[in-house]
Structure formats: structure tokens, C-alpha cells
């Protein structure tokens, strides 16, 4: 009995958090598929860079994970769920397990740092007491202690992105998706952002980051998946940005 229990536990441990199985995605207006026969497994706790030029399919990959788009072919599993069989009304529950960070931060300009982070919990109906306890912790985790009452326009780009990360992480998601999070930030500040993402990754959260930033990819030495015209052209653990093979 103990043995089978352990095996079951191991199975779950080893099931990928994100599993793309021969996934093809075509947009109606475009001739070339945005993703073509892509198979990628992302394990729990992994840190994955998704690299490639614009239009190579990075954003489509992220949108598919969130079930904002549906694949034309292939199967996608996220957090153990087959997305094709996930009914629409359950999609919000999937998204609660996935945090998202974008190049343009997407903060609410009329709310301060605390309120921006709290917003993510308010709209999923968390009790006020819980919010008051959790939000300051996360604000501190991203390195914004003492700035909880600042408005977004009083913060630098790097600080705004930290707020966005705090908001994405405050509900302790299983997966954090970051789409060019350092795209609007100078290189020196980007290092700070990467440190925050690394810290989040160390809590056991799977991080998938789409990026153009070669310096960052090279410095982190994490798994790199390179897309080109919708196809996986490289999947390398402890990789670098450039064509190193």
C-alpha cells in the first residue's frame, strides 16, 4: 500500500505542469501557422526562456496556455487539465493558477501599489482580512517595501513591473507567465526584475518567460526553447540566447 501511494505521488510530481503535444495554431487571417506541430513539456518548478524573433509564436504559446486561444490541432495540458475538455466557465479557475506579467505592466493608474495588488484578490472574492495580510508580504517579496501607497505614475518602470509581478504572484499561482517583462526596462533595472522572478521560481513556481533579451538569457543559464516561424528549433537546458549549437 505504501509503495503504490508513493508511486502515485511520484507520478503526479513528474507530470509536466505545461504539456504541449503536437500543437498547431493557425489564425484565420494568416497563411503560415503561428505554431506548427509544437511539443513542449514544462516540469513543475522549472524556469523556461522562450526565445525567438517577433512573430515566431512566443505570444501565441502563452495565449494557448491561458486558453485565450484554442489550438487547431494537438493537445494542451495545463496544471493537469486537458484544456480542450475544460469548459468555458471553468477557465477563470485555470487562470487563478497562472500569473501573468506583460511588457506594458498593465497597472490601474488610479489605484496605488497596495490596491493594484489587492485588486487581483478582490475580484476573485478573497476576504478583506486575507488581503490585508497577504498583500504586504508580496509587496515586500518584490522589493517594494515602504512604497505600498505610491501611485503607479510615481514609480520607475522597473518598480511598476515589480508591482505587476506582485499582482501576478499574490495568489500564489502554480505557473508564472512573463511576456517580455524587461522589454520596457533598461538593462541595469532588468537584472533586478530577473532576481525577483528567480526568487519566485525558488518558491516552486514554474516560470515561463518570453524574451528578446539575449544578455538576460545568457546570464541566467536556464532552459531555453527557441521558436522560429512557429516551430521549435532548439530546446536546451542551461542554454544561451544565441545559436550556440
Amino acid at each position: 500500500m505504501v509503495g503504490s501511494d508513493t508511486r502515485h505521488h511520484n507520478l503526479r510530481e513528474h507530470a509536466p505542469v505545461i504539456n504541449f503535444d503536437n500543437v498547431t495554431k493557425r489564425y484565420p487571417t494568416q497563411k503560415r501557422p503561428a505554431l506548427e506541430d509544437v511539443s513542449i513539456q514544462v516540469e513543475k518548478g522549472e524556469f523556461l526562456f522562450l526565445v525567438g524573433p517577433s512573430g515566431s509564436g512566443k505570444s501565441t504559446f502563452l495565449r494557448l496556455v491561458l486558453k485565450e486561444e484554442r489550438p487547431n490541432d494537438g493537445r494542451i495540458h495545463v496544471a493537469g487539465k486537458d484544456l480542450a475538455r475544460l469548459s468555458n466557465w471553468k477557465v477563470p479557475h485555470l487562470r487563478r493558477r497562472i500569473g501573468c506579467v506583460f511588457q506594458d505592466f498593465r497597472l490601474l493608474p488610479n489605484k496605488d501599489v497596495f490596491e493594484n495588488v489587492a485588486f487581483a484578490l478582490e475580484v476573485i472574492g478573497k476576504p478583506r482580512r486575507f488581503i490585508r495580510k497577504v498583500v504586504p508580504e508580496v509587496v515586500e517579496l518584490v522589493g517594494l517595501e515602504g512604497k505600498a501607497d505610491r501611485m503607479p505614475d510615481e514609480l520607475s518602470g522597473g518598480e511598476q513591473q515589480r508591482v505587476a509581478i506582485a499582482r501576478a504572484f499574490v495568489n500564489r499561482p502554480m505557473i508564472l507567465l512573463a511576456d517580455e517583462p524587461t522589454g520596457n526596462i533598461d538593462p541595469a533595472t532588468s537584472i533586478g526584475i530577473m532576481k525577483v522572478l528567480d526568487r519566485i521560481n525558488r518558491t516552486g513556481t514554474t516560470v515561463v518567460m518570453a524574451t528578446h533579451d539575449a544578455a538576460i538569457v545568457d546570464s541566467m543559464r536556464k532552459r531555453v526553447v527557441e521558436l522560429e516561424e512557429g516551430k521549435v528549433v532548439r530546446d536546451q537546458s542551461r542554454g544561451v540566447y544565441g545559436q550556440a549549437y
Binding site: W89, R96, F119, I124
Partner: peptide, 11 residues
């Protein structure tokens, strides 16, 4: 943002 953080459609 509400959509992204998983607020229900109803909400």
C-alpha cells in the same frame, strides 16, 4: 486584468 487573474465571468 480581471480576466487575467481569473475573476469569474459573472463577477
Amino acid at each position: 486584468i480581471m480576466r487575467l487573474v481569473g475573476a469569474s465571468n459573472f463577477y
